[in-house]
Amino acid sequence: MFEARLVEGSLLKKVMESIKDLLNEASWDCSGNGMCLQAMDSSHVALVSLMLKSDGFENYRCDRSISLGINLASMSKILKCASNDDIITIRAEDDADAITFMFESPKQDRVSDYEMKLMNLDTEHLGIPDTEYACVIKMPSGEFSRICRDLSVLGDSVIICCTKDGVRFSAKGDLGNGNIKLAQSANVDKEEEAVVVDMREAVTLTFSLRYLNFFTKAAPLSSQVSLSMSEDVPLMVEYKINDKEGDSKGYVRYYLAPKIED
């Protein structure tokens, strides 16, 4: 039997919002370590790899590893029935053909449960090679969302140029062109507002803004986002999920293949 109880139910709601527009269906791979999900979008240009660690749950029982095939649009609709301050419990029998969600109000005066059919999905998992990235940019997640939204006014691609001075985002199109330069933050008094560029060597890559704007749906999960880049390697965009003490409860990682000038 699999059963996981999440006191901060809003976390699962936000996770669903961060993937439902990019993926149609995916499997939650549940094991003793936690709940993982890895899936590519239908065009195989972007991949989501997310994990909710077992110690982020108030209680977590996983008798044996199981894979729960889910239609994400349906799961997202059911999770919309949960209030932000609800406690969410997910349950599935080992030989399950259905998954149950239970939402409890904080005062336990309102308990709802929803059962959803599971799907048989062949979980084709890609191997993501461990990469020593040439550049890692850490910045406020709201800032990145703003850049992606603003530049998509100009064109459908963004050129991200990372040097030791900082990072520049550029876009051009029929309307004209635009550049947004972020300098490395000097005084890092408030960690989460800082822009930190860790550069081994300069990198310039081009990416689709359409996909980046899907990725920024994860911004409510984390005040910071990191962009990891190397020449001719997919971009990794990571939103870490930490608790109030800053301990890791998991992450949402997006990978995006670059666009190549030909």
Partner: peptide
């Protein structure tokens, strides 16, 4: 024009 690559060009099928 920019050609959009696919992830399978970079990640390996298990």
């Amino acid at each position: 024009i920019n050609y959009q690559n696919k992830l399978v060009d970079y990640f390996f099928d298990r």
